[in-house]
Design a protein around this nucleic acid. Structure first.
Lengths: 259, 259
DNA sequence: CACCGTTTTATCAAATACTGCAAAATATGT
DNA sequence: ACATATTTTGCAGTATTTGATAAAACGGTG
């Protein structure tokens, strides 16, 4: 039944019960029952003419995430602080892994005119391109990486992360050792990404903190300085989370496993 | 299974599988299955130590709503426009009914220093107090109103909307005739609310457009002018939606029925 | 690196709850 | 009011889900 939710995309944000029934391969009556349940908790909302769209509960839960999410809470002040150091037209991102992708969960715009950035709050971005993603990738568990390499070796080779498993492994180990990652024009041409990992107290990856700069304003000296700043910011976020959070032993994480 | 989602609130944003199993009254194994399914679609996300919180899919779907929702799309430019006419420290809200409450789905801040407003994107507000809510209430279907009156007559009387069903009916009819609603200090003391309904092409209520002003800056003349502006804005939003949307016949709406 | 406690998945028989069909009920348009 | 579109309901049969238990996977530790 939850599969219905995945039907609703930006390209097709409205579905009728019948359309969904056909795609699910269930009877209309069953689809009605699904829609009714999802509507009751507010995940769907009826429009005129038997069409449905995503519902108000999502807005409500999004607010809860904004208020409660530990990483977001810890990161917000740091990001507002750090963006001051970046040249005009820069953006600062907080991102986390999701499915086989990376999602931006918070974005702080710098001063000066802004051109659009591909990373945008809530948008899924590729896991193998861009500093923001790569530094997250580099800290995934070996088990997880192995599975990814099996399923995406072409894409990985294409992104220059290695043609063999050993190359891939050692490329990522390099990023881990460096403490961060810098890419140029990987996602948006004319943009430079500078990212550092955010780890929990057990060393598991939670997400990344990153700058996106205009390439024109990103010479060696600047990127170098911002790289250090990004890493320092990530450490600050980790510290803030550790202070706020009840310390808990690391445990298995279903979401990251199966991926 | 969807009931699990409602466990996650701002007061308790993290749950363990065992806690949820106990509250659901199901076995641990079943709760694990629920959490696994919800995690797979991203509605939940595992934290360290067997704790779970709301997941990244919510952020993704929220973005979709921001981009796709017809009322929101139509309202955004109008709201940016209208807020210019309001005195310092004002806010403009777009709201919609949800459960037995009203939820703000978009908020535009005016110029000048801002004090916090109770209506806040994603927060549920009472249906019987404040202009924003009252004008929505006034346009609910008779069937729906009857059900509400049965279940909330004390609250309704308390809000001055009528002690009997007939009083209640006629109070609301008055608001409908007036084309909008003005309240003073109903929700936040020292604030004035000015609201107009947003209806679909069949006359069903979709939500409300409203100003929240500082009472100190809201004399008769100003509230009168802004009342007209609010009504005009609501009409603009309705027109914009009608232009963008494929015209569809009005049909039954499950969500509004059962409430 | 093998151990231990915890968390998570897998197994399987029993049973509940879900499905599909068709008809009734509810809304809407003319 | 009638015709049509949409949504709900009742019912029989089955399939999915459930709970109890066992097994596996994981992190932490010595």
């Amino acid at each position: 039944m939850l599969a219905v939710l995945e039907f609703f995309t930006i390209d097709k944000p409205e579905w009728t019960v019948e359309e969904a029934a056909a795609r699910l391969g269930v009877s209309t009556a069953t689809a009605y029952r699904y829609f009714k349940r999802l509507t009751k908790v507010g995940l769907l909302s009826p429009l005129a003419g038997a069409h449905y769209s995503l519902g108000p509960a999502i807005i409500q839960m999004d607010r809860q995430i904004q208020i409660c999410d530990p990483m977001l809470r810890a990161a917000r002040p740091v990001m507002i602080d750090l963006i001051q150091y970046a040249p005009e037209g820069s953006t600062m991102l907080l991102s986390r892994p999701f499915h086989d992708c990376v999602m931006c969960v918070h974005q702080v715009l710098g001063h000066g005119p802004q051109q659009p950035v591909s990373y945008e709050r809530g948008r899924l971005m590729p896991l193998f391109r861009g500093a923001t993603s790569t530094i997250i990738l580099a800290h995934l568990s070996p088990r997880h990486l192995k599975s990814l390499f099996k399923r995406h070796s072409a894409e990985i080779a294409n992104a220059g992360l290695g043609k063999t498993w050993d190359q891939f492994r050692s490329t990522l180990a390099g990023f881990r050792r460096a403490g961060g990652c810098i890419t140029r024009g990987d996602i948006d041409s004319g943009r430079v990404g500078i990212a550092a990992p955010i780890l929990d107290s057990n060393g598991a990856i939670l997400g990344s903190l990153s700058f996106v700069l205009l390439q024109a304003k990103a010479d060696e000296a600047i990127t170098g300085r911002l790289f250090s700043l990004t890493c320092a910011g990530a450490r600050e976020i980790e510290r803030a989370m550790a202070d706020e959070t009840v310390v808990r032993p690391a445990r298995m994480k279903m979401a990251l496993r199966a991926v």
